[in-house]
Design a binder for these strands. Structure first.
Lengths: 338, 338
DNA sequence: CTGAAAGCGCTTACAG
DNA sequence: CTGAAAGCGCTTACAG
């Protein structure tokens, strides 16, 4: 298998199939794309020829000829957070059913990497572009807007979308969640979320938390406001610090995994949830149901966001009308942790 | 924004840039691919022209001309299992550093869907193909082998790889894990894993479990051998049934998430781990460390599998030699759950 | 029902 | 340093 020595294995082309079947390339192309327009006998010969050489059509060439790539590009901030993975699953399901392929990129929450990936993805002349959030660099936004491809921004629906947006009101969700905690009577409610810089959703959630405090007539305690990365370990570290730091009696986390890390730390060290400290998350991932007593969380269907994004792209070509947002809504699911 | 009414937005082509800059397309192409071969003044004019129209090169056209797509296709059985997501992260990291794009597909553990995706992916003339496991349909294997592109099979390294394989000995890992449990003195050791049909890794793991029992001179109890899907809920359901069914005193799960679901169920219902029932998983995901007392698991670096797969593809073109496997090894990490 | 020609947007030798 | 021609593998009108 000295395959790598021979850089150009000659893969079968339409021409090879045509020659083998004794017809022209056009006819083979038709047998592939409009079988009904080819006589049964010819079709049989062509099919046999294709089988014989294991012909696989070159989709890049087809795409160039048809001006349509059957590729959709999706950009997520991280694959470490299951909400984005769920969204990708929903998207992939819809696209696969339509014979489209998914190009995936991980921006690491970095707007510049997002911009670079947007440019690169647009180079594939995708049939759709799925972004996370509504905050992008000016050039990324300009490229996406000017590309002519359907663009779907996911999760955050604040502001004017480039084209379509599918998500829910992150600020309202954080506000509702925090209000629930305050209604329970907790008095030192902390908030732990992603860094807000360049992240509209993180900023919106934190705003929701702050608004809830304000509405309850409570002061913001700087020590109770933390930024952290997305990991279970981070949740553990955060709760250790917040409890030591002079006592949060409740913590609102911006994600279930972080919250679960904190929750498990409590189980491990004997801190009682919610008696010593209440904990809640965001996303209502399966772990929220399974933690002992359950984790209070915000439910919003991540898979559905992906599905709707996929559908918006699939029928985006027949659709018309200006930019618009779809709000999938959310629900505060109260469980034992608060 | 009646964008959708106008199917063909005219995106800037090389020709448009060339006209704007007052040069030929070749020169613009050179400015892009070999800037040093273009005079500084010309380059400036070209750069300005590109800026002006937000030019984004058509990568499909480039790929066709260069016979190189800068696309790598990866197929995973599911995105619900974090080990595959981790692998994809590792792969994506390496590829992004080389300006390559990731096409991702989710086979749902279905060999026919895998075959379909292999064919479709090969249609993109990818620079590499990353598969899961070494068991594929004959046609999928034939297509991959005959495609001339570097193929990396991941996780399982049993059998002869199509080209490269990166993973570890799944059977040996399950054997070692089960042996550890038996050494601890547990006598009714259950095994819960994915259906083995069409899944070489699942079969290998189950074989390892059976071999460990055999080596210990213990009989296989059919009631203690279960198949289940990959989810935390499934782990919960499994442990409920196994404990009821007349008492496993230890359970080896084929994944950490399933094991964690079972573990959490124990916490919730007061079953003591490991006193009432010992539990262990596979993958050493972060949750394994965070569960109270810790979850015994098999550690194998999923991200590293992705990285090595990516590197094999990146320098696959200069490399030579026959098919070969890379064994990344594994380690049984003993924690409180056993 | 079938085929010859032109074109999709690039790059690669080959000339100048 | 720059450009004209040919080609990458398809599809799309246009003829027959």
């Amino acid at each position: 298998m000295a395959r790598r020595d021979i850089p150009n294995i000659r893969r079968a082309r339409l021409q090879d199939v045509a020659t083998a079947a004794g017809v022209s390339v056009v006819t083979v192309s038709r047998a592939l794309n409009a079988p009904a327009t080819v006589s049964a006998r010819t079709r049989e010969r062509i099919d046999a020829a294709m089988q014989a050489v294991d012909y696989v059509p070159d989709l890049a060439a087809r795409g160039m000829a048809k001006q349509r790539s059957d590729i959709v590009a999706v950009l997520v901030p991280t694959l470490l957070d299951p909400i984005f993975v769920d969204m990708v699953r929903g998207l992939e399901g819809v696209l696969a059913a339509h014979g489209m392929h998914l190009l995936i990129g991980d921006t690491g929450y970095d707007p510049d990497r997002e911009e670079a990936f947007v440019a690169a993805a647009l180079g594939r002349r995708p049939d759709g572009l799925v972004l996370t959030g509504t905050q992008h660099t000016p050039r990324a936004r300009r490229l996406a807007a000017g590309s002519g491809v359907p663009v779907v921004e996911t999760w955050g629906i604040e502001g004017e979308p480039i084209d379509r947006a599918v998500g829910y009101d992150q600020r309202a969700a954080a506000l509702a969640l925090t209000r629930h905690v305050l209604d329970r009577g907790y008095e030192r409610v902390a908030y732990v979320g992603r860094p807000v810089s360049g992240n509209g959703r993180a900023a919106a959630k934190r705003d929701g938390y702050l608004a809830a405090l304000r509405a309850a007539g409570m002061a913001v305690v700087p020590e109770l406001l933390m930024e952290c990365v997305t990991s279970m370990e981070a949740g553990k570290d955060a709760i250790k610090r917040l409890v030591r730091r002079g006592g949060a009696d409740a913590i609102v986390f911006s994600g279930d995994r972080i919250a679960a890390g904190a929750f498990l730390h409590c189980l491990d060290t004997g801190l009682r949830v919610p008696d010593d400290v209440a904990v809640c998350g965001f996303g209502d991932h399966d772990i929220a149901r399974l933690l002992p007593g359950g984790l209070t969380s915000v439910r919003a269907d991540s898979v559905q966001i992906g599905r709707l994004a996929g559908e918006a792209i699939v029928d985006g070509r027949v659709d018309d009308g200006g930019p618009r947002s779809v709000d999938i809504g959310f629900e505060v699911v109260v469980r034992g942790s608060t």
